[in-house]
Amino acid sequence: MKRNNFIERSLVGTLVFLKESVFSDDYAARRAFLQGLDPRCKLAAILMLLLAVMFSRNIYFLAGMYALCLLLAVSSSIRLGFFLKRTWVFIPLFSLFIAVPAIFEVFTPGQAVARLQLFGLSLTITRQGLASAGFFFIRVLTSVSLCVLLVLTTRHYALLKALRFFKIPQVFVMTAGMCYRYIYLFIEIIENTYLAIKSRVGTVPSTKKGQMVVAWNIGGLWQRSYTLHNQVYSAMVSRGYTGEPRDMNEFSAAGIDFLWLGTAFLILGLSLWQTYYLN
């Protein structure tokens, strides 16, 4: 019974997480620093900052970049607790697990700083190992933070339209936008189907049955998505779509946007200068 509840909780939890994380534009709608920037300039600046993080080999520089992310989050009216939860869950934790072996002498020989006895094995932690693991971790954390900032403070359609400015093919941008829109519809279908099954059969009596219900749901959804795909295409053709979608460009950049772009450019320059000239 508990395992069956696990299926239900997983299904409901996944849907709630998707709705809250992917479709919520609460932060993007606020009036604050990053939200007020032109999406094209914001995207270009974030890309430059990401490059700066990727090229840098200085841990203090990376720590500074992470501090900048936190500062940007606060100045963009993003609750710090929410931001840390979004950035620390999954990717940085995952990368930490990847980086952990690197702290041991087996993988990174160097100056010993501590010894551990684990399952009868004697493991030595090296200073060089700690440095490379920390370096890897903070680089991932900062990169993820920058991406989360971009996504949280930009309405998804503005972000997609900004991609067009960088010559990403319109078909790709439009397909991404439609995926976003229809994932929501499919989530609703899954929720309603699950509720309909529950209302008819009550609590699913066994895990095996529960798995079967999930499988039916997936099968049904696949069929619906196939039908929907044909209908949506017809609706597009009906309104004159011939394969190359056209849209309106309504962006406008102001002085603050160029200032922000220039700052990001300077930071990238600083990173490159540190990496290739100073060292």
Binding site: H156, Y157, R181, Q231, R246, D247
Partner: peptide
């Protein structure tokens, strides 16, 4: 169309309304 979900595929209402005349 009978099902408006089929017809409204753009990210915002405004873009959806403008889709046809722009194409």
């Amino acid at each position: 169309f009978q099902n408006p979900d089929v017809q409204l595929f753009c990210p915002t209402v405004k873009e959806d309304i403008l889709f046809g005349p722009l194409q």
